[in-house]
Design a protein around this nucleic acid. Sequence first.
DNA 1: ATTAACCCTTGAGTTAACTTTAGAGTCAAG
DNA 2: CTTGACTCTAAAGTTAACTCAAGGGTTAAT
Lengths: 142, 142
Amino acid sequence: MSYKIGELSKLTSCNIETLRYYEREGLLPPPPRGNNGYRYYPQDSVQRVRFILHAKSLGFSLADIAELLSIQVDKNASTCGDVKQIAEHKLATIARKISELKEMYRALEKVSAACDGSEASAEHCTILQALESDAARAEKHL
Amino acid sequence: MSYKIGELSKLTSCNIETLRYYEREGLLPPPPRGNNGYRYYPQDSVQRVRFILHAKSLGFSLADIAELLSIQVDKNASTCGDVKQIAEHKLATIARKISELKEMYRALEKVSAACDGSEASAEHCTILQALESDAARAEKHL
DNA sequence: ATTAACCCTTGAGTTAACTTTAGAGTCAAG
DNA sequence: CTTGACTCTAAAGTTAACTCAAGGGTTAAT
């Protein structure tokens, strides 16, 4: 009903040392210990670690992630305003990232398509040129 | 018709030293120099630097970014297969990032919504719980 | 009962990505 | 013609995020 650190490490593909590091940094709550001093992680630790790893790969710093994980609605609604504000701010950040990624995606798609040897190849040879032509189109409101 | 390093720095909000560092690392092509030894950057450097900064904030390493920037369709189609393969691989990476961000977005939206003091508040108190309930729903094919 | 494979802590070492420092030349304004 | 704001290089320093090493206890299987 709980995982030793090596098991959690395998389930998440996260280095054992990194797990202990995340605990020191406050990203993972200190798990209960056995009489032997071993850490026994509850199941939901798997999800928490995966969340951390995903968020990291999306360009969030560990400090950002700690903040994301700390967001929670309280029984007493006193902190609710604060929570909502943090959440909305993160939502805006995420929305911006999504649209930037979509832009990159479109541009890269064009480059890839240009590889089909079509006549238009020469136009969008690099991702920067593809982005450029997109930007130009946007400015001319096409 | 060209920018000195300080100008490029202001236009991109990128530290002067960082610009020189990117040049050393091969992310920015060495710009032409004046007789004084000064760097004179062509206009499109602005876009290139901005691209680097955006990609960085989306979790790409400088090595990733160098690869993205190096993708280009050649006149001779010999390298076209390679280019396409790299591009497709990057496209997959980007697509994955987008869907992970969307998942985070939905989860965070729920947490934020729970702040409105509705009855259901207690259910999705944290981003992890919101993600959890999403995953459960997905598994039950709802 | 030993041995391999775990786990613990503390502290030092590493890597990527900057950032600062030092020392020196350049340019534009008054 | 000097003063303040630029620019240059080379090298050292910093920060975040790990990662490893040393030394020592624990557990499971032979």
